[in-house]
Structures are given as structure tokens and as C-alpha cells.
Design a protein around this nucleic acid. Structure first.
Lengths: 257, 257
DNA sequence: ATAGTTGTTCCCTCCTGGGGAACGTTTCTG
DNA sequence: CAGAAACGTTCCCCAGGAGGGAACAACTAT
């Protein structure tokens, strides 16, 4: 828990914190029971017990064997969340078809709390395996998705996010400071797409295009692949075109919803 | 809130309940604020306020415009949940390929709290549109997925679920009572697959096959389509074969995990 | 300008939720 | 097989935390 600068004070409710600590714990490690949870969180067994009862009654968790796991209701919540962001069906369709056409990894991401979250991901036929998966968060400065979204956010929001940013060099190409970042954002705005030249993971390059609704960015769509197949020419040419037109299709379809 | 017979007493924590009521509400209707939530749940604004603070600090909800929506962390939770159930990648791959082969709707479901929850769904090329979506719950007696899973659960669990069942006729073919249900389960066990002959939705038929791990059912996979294309012959022949072999593939791949 | 709306903050009070310990039950283990 | 260890469950107590009311501040709209 690093001290977040952007957290407002105000009162916070302890039992709710505990409840979500339990959920978090069960997310990481399913099948554990009262004692284990109590130890892990530093609470008494009785406390944990009544929390588990509450969560179980709500069907947020499920007893399985001896231990608990998170309930399937989260799948439902997740699909609602996706729909709240935008028209997820369209996004999914477009991402899938771009993945099929190109055979590579195609992702759609949005900004939240100064990070990029992947809403959808599809691995094409020849796609390299990567660890990122739906729901994961990545920094904005080291990914093409992140930089591209950032480039089109309102200036004050860019400032806000940039101010809270901690630059951690992931590779030797990673952007390491604000000046470099702002320059990059300018470039992205000029060319209409962003690239990641092995800035997040060695050997991988990406191109992304923003998906806007009127003047606000909803998110961005990207193609990722190995540098061997993703030459700079191809990145800036064919591939940039493809993500941009995919982004366009999504934009057109979300306009009327 | 109908009185659930299977809920054990034990102490339950009020503030946690409230917190999840808020989450539920935001799931149904995003973008509402303090006052609205307070009205809806019958709490004071100050109470709701501190809850929102807590949830926001945890990044479970996000302020957007004036109002809140659920955070993207739920996507992450959902993907963890899916992985906890079984090897989701395999399931997804198999469902997708079966959907592509047949062009119809293919789904994978598991049992939880006496209902079927859909873990994954893919619409093939010619698939009819249905409303069911991932995370949704359906009764077990009126769906082929439900009946098939039920058939292979341990006898005591079958009893338990059957005892709590309330038969609501969805169409004129819906199973309406335990005798009929148990007969059907026996048939399913004999033939190794289950069908739904317009029992849940008029005009739709399904076939499902169980996915087992040793002797325990993990879930079931099903194909759904319009009765016009899904003749009884095809259901019991070609289509039954296809779901069964898909189920087999999943079984073989999950054996070693 | 003003009335109505929203979100926020302050307090007070009661009751709720957390902790300790004791109790049943199951699982090791020697 | 008996004793011990570990687990989940229950009971009770009491402090402090959570919910509510009301006042305040910031907007919006008329």
C-alpha cells in the first residue's frame, strides 16, 4: 500500500474493508478456510467466520470441499461492467476479426485510475504467448495502448495522470520521464496512432489506435507481435492502417447507442 | 428475497450487506450518485457516502461524471474465478471451435447454488440470437445443460437440489415435477447426453454432454439451435456425437492440471 | 437572484461487529 | 486405537464504529 496522493480522506468502513480483503484473498488463493484466512488477514476466527457467512448468504462465495472460492456471480458482474463501458459486443467482434485477419494478438483497453485495463483480448493463429490477460492492468507510459489513450484524454486529466506516474524502466526503450512522454503523446496525436517499440517487453512491438466517441476517448485497440514479424515499416504502414480502420468501425457503431 | 431453506443461521454483518447492495445497485444502473442510492436502499446519505468512499478507495467503484460505476477490477476477478473452476482456456477453445464447425450457439455451464451458470458462450455464424449471456443463471430442470449436469452429480447432491426446486413451466414441454425429472436424469445417464426439446424456450432445442473429471462433473457443454434445423434425428445423432466428443477433448485436457 | 438540487461534513448515540475463549468434530499420528 | 492437533462453530462481552440527522457547501436551473 504505497501512499496514493489522489485518495481523499473521508470516513471509511472497516468491516467492508475486511470483507473485500477476504474476497481479494480468495481471488488469489481459492479453497482456503476460516483459520487460514484469519491468519492471513490478522483477524480472529470468529470475525472471519461471520464475514464468510455474510458473503456466503449473498452467494458471493461458495463453499467447496473444505474451503471457499469466489462465486460465479462475478462473471455476471463482469459482463455488466463491460457493457457499462461501451458497446462491448461491437468491440469484441472487431477485436476478434482483426485477430483472425492478422493472426496476431489484438487487445482493447481503457484507462482507469491512471492505468490501462484490458477489456478484451484475442490471440490470433500465429500469436506469441503473452501473460497479459483480461482485467490485468499495465502502466500507461510503457504500452502503446496506454500512450495512445493518454494522448487523447483531456489535457487536465493527462496532467493528473502524469503527475502520479512512477516511471519504471521495463526495457531499455521504456519512456523514463515526463518530457519524453509528452513528446511521444504529441507524435501520437500527429500521426493518429501510437506504437510500442519493445518498450514494455523485449522482442514485442505494438501499434494502437484510439477509439473516440465525439471528443472523448473510450479506449484504444492494439495489435501486438514479435519484432521479427513487426518491422518498423509494417508497423507504421499496413498494421497502423488496420488498427485505425478497426477503431473507426467501433467508433461508427458506438455512435448510435 | 424468498425464504431460502438452505441458508444457515449464524451472524451476518450489516455494513457488508449494505456495501454489496450498493454494488448490486450500481451493477443494474450505472452512473447514479449518493442521493439516488440512499433513496433506493433506504439509508441516509451519510451512510451511503462513507460506503462509497470505502469502495472508491478500494477501486471497486469509479467516479464517472457525476455518479459512480463499477470498476474494471471485476474483470480481473472474473477471469480468476473462471480459472478456479477448471482450465478455462481449454474450455474456451473447444467451445469456440465447436461453434465455428456447427455455426450454432455453443455454451459451457456449471452448477452453482442449484442453478446453471454459463461460463462461456459463443455464437456461430448462423446462430439464432438468444438472451442468455455469460454469468446468467438458469434453472436446471428446463435446460439441457442443467439436466445433464444434474444427472451426473452425486446422488445426495441431486436430492438436495431437487428438494429446493420450484418447477415453473416455461413452455408446454417443461418438466413439471420430480418424478418426471428423475426419469429424465436416468435417460440421460443411459444415453450419455441430454436434450432440451423446446423445454426452456419455444422453438429452440439443445443437446449437452457432461464434462467429468474422474467421477465428478465439472460442467457440461451444449449446442443450441432452432427446431427447424435441429430435427430429433440430428439431435440424437450428429449433434449428440459432436458435443460428446468436444466434452471428451475437454476432459482429456483437464486431466493433467 | 433565489429556490431546489446535489454532495459533503459534523456529531451523537446505540448497537454492531471484532476478539477471546470454550466447545464439537474431524483429521493426524505415534 | 487413543491422544493430540487442527479445524469450524458458537457464545459472550464491550469498545468503538457505523448509521442517522441536520447543518453546510457547491451547483444548477428557473
Amino acid at each position: 500500500m504505497s501512499p496514493q496522493p489522489n485518495e481523499r480522506p473521508g470516513r471509511t468502513i472497516r468491516s467492508v474493508q475486511i470483507a473485500f480483503n477476504i474476497v481479494d484473498l480468495l481471488q488469489e488463493e481459492a479453497g482456503i478456510g476460516v483459520t487460514r484466512i484469519a491468519d492471513e488477514l490478522g483477524h480472529s476466527k470468529s470475525t472471519v467466520h461471520s464475514h464468510l457467512r455474510t458473503l456466503e448468504e449473498r452467494r458471493i462465495i461458495v463453499r467447496e470441499g473444505d474451503g471457499y472460492r469466489l462465486g460465479l456471480c462475478f462473471l455476471d458482474v463482469a459482463s455488466h461492467v463491460r457493457d457499462q463501458i461501451g458497446n462491448f459486443d461491437i468491440v469484441q467482434k472487431e477485436v476478434d476479426s482483426l485477430a483472425e485477419e492478422t493472426g496476431e494478438i489484438v487487445q482493447f483497453g481503457v484507462e482507469e485510475y491512471g492505468k490501462v485495463s484490458y477489456l478484451h483480448k484475442t490471440q490470433g493463429e500465429n500469436a506469441v504467448e503473452t501473460l497479459s490477460r483480461v482485467g490485468t492492468q499495465q502502466p500507461m507510459y510503457s504500452t502503446s495502448l496506454g500512450k495512445t489513450i493518454l494522448a487523447y484524454l483531456p489535457p487536465e486529466r493527462i496532467e493528473e495522470i502524469a503527475a502520479a506516474m512512477e516511471y519504471e524502466p521495463k526495457t531499455e526503450n521504456t519512456i523514463t520521464g515526463p518530457e519524453e512522454l509528452f513528446e511521444e503523446l504529441e507524435t501520437i496525436r500527429e500521426q493518429g496512432y501510437g506504437i510500442d517499440d519493445e518498450e514494455n517487453i523485449n522482442g514485442l512491438r505494438c501499434v494502437s489506435a484510439p477509439v473516440k466517441n465525439d471528443e472523448t476517448v473510450l479506449g484504444a485497440i492494439s495489435i501486438t507481435g514479435p519484432s521479427s514479424r513487426f518491422t518498423k515499416d509494417r508497423l507504421h504502414g499496413e498494421l497502423a492502417d488496420r488498427v485505425q480502420s478497426a477503431a473507426n468501425v467501433i467508433e461508427l457503431n458506438t455512435k448510435f447507442s
